[in-house]
Design a protein around this nucleic acid. Structure first.
Lengths: 198, 198
DNA sequence: GATGTACACTGAACAGTGTTCAGGAGTTGA
DNA sequence: TCAACTCCTGAACACTGTTCAGTGTACATC
């Protein structure tokens, strides 16, 4: 009975086609401008067909964001694996996070800003994994006695807020910002100085 | 010729009616859920009528945000007027900013997150005034020799990023955050410690 | 008072959106 | 050959922001 398997494979292929088309539109145009009809047109199917493969539009975009954030989680995991100075690892982790957001603005906005508008039982799991890496990095610094506060969760969330701020600001606000890297570095520097024991 | 004046007054009244209806819907339901037809229904006019008073939907929401941000600018101005310790004034300014955002989530998101999507020559001027107040507060701290960096613009933008981050995170992300005030205070504390000269 | 004009307003229409679903094909196994 | 199953279509629904020809009223002029 190879028939079922072949069918499953074909189905998976079309799922991938949909994701590829959606990804291309999404990266180029952003969430709002990706319409089901445009995706359908791109893969040369009828609009209704999309709904045989995905629950709704949000499910497609969610899947794409999940992919992307897996990459970030990997990057941050790699930084944590480095056994050098924990505080320096934390700094690099924060820097990586912001750079990732700036490099993937549409993904970032959908995952962290429009997340509430598109509620789903399973919030992006890769996003959760990214935060876990941040927690780990903070814990190491505390264990190394490098921080002025012992509350892992509190510090991790505060740091997240800090890097999230500069990321969303750079992505969404048209404002005469100073040179981007200088601003990012300054924010990260302030955050690290603000938690460092002295 | 009191006729023209009366007409202008009537026109202004209807403009206000539209704004009132839009404000109520907006505060309760958020930008996406405010439709021109709903506003029109609320004030018992035809949808087309709205367009005799406002260029488009964005113009209405912008006007409402402008109002709200004027209040914030006032609050921050009042804090700057206080001649006590500049660093403490800065701290209170940052705290006020975040609290304002959390108290006016819909306004905040429209003004600072969807601002790019709804591009307009005149970015919210009250928002600009708020940032001016932040600049002033930073400048005073530098003049008082309290900061470890002399670049007003760089520090002001970095601080803005920090408070913007915690604000948007609390508004838009459904995440198991620690108690809200503790998180806000921690972020502000980190930011202040991170720029303070020691 | 009649007339012409200027203005306010309507509501249907347009082009778009996400989503649903009855029905039409094509393939499969008996 | 025929029934069953699967995949897909495309029209339809209810919504969105926005436009615009047409209507009715209030005013200024004759």
């Amino acid at each position: 009975m190879g028939v079922q398997e072949r069918r499953a494979r074909q189905k998976e292929n079309i799922r991938e086609e949909i994701l590829d088309a959606a990804r291309a539109l999404f990266v180029k145009e952003g969430y709002e401008r990706v319409s089901i009809r445009k995706i359908a047109e791109k893969i040369e199917y009828a609009p209704g067909t999309i709904y045989l493969y995905f629950e709704d539009k949000a499910a497609i975009l969610e899947r794409i964001c999940e992919e992307t954030f897996s990459k970030l989680a990997q990057k941050m995991h790699a930084i944590n694996a480095d056994p050098s100075n924990p505080l320096d690892g934390l700094r690099r982790g924060l820097r990586t996070y912001v750079q990732f957001g700036v490099d993937n603005p549409n993904h970032y906005i959908v995952a962290f800003v429009q997340a509430k508008q598109i509620p789903r039982d399973a919030q992006p799991k890769a996003g959760e994994r990214c935060f876990d890496n941040l927690r780990t990095a903070v814990r190491r610094c505390i264990e190394a006695g490098q921080l002025n506060c012992e509350d892992v969760e509190e510090i991790a969330q505060a740091l997240w807020a800090g890097v999230h701020g500069v990321t969303t600001l750079l992505i969404t606000c048209s404002f005469p910002f100073i040179e981007q890297n200088r601003l990012i570095d300054r924010v990260v520097h302030i955050l690290i100085e603000g938690i460092r024991k002295r």
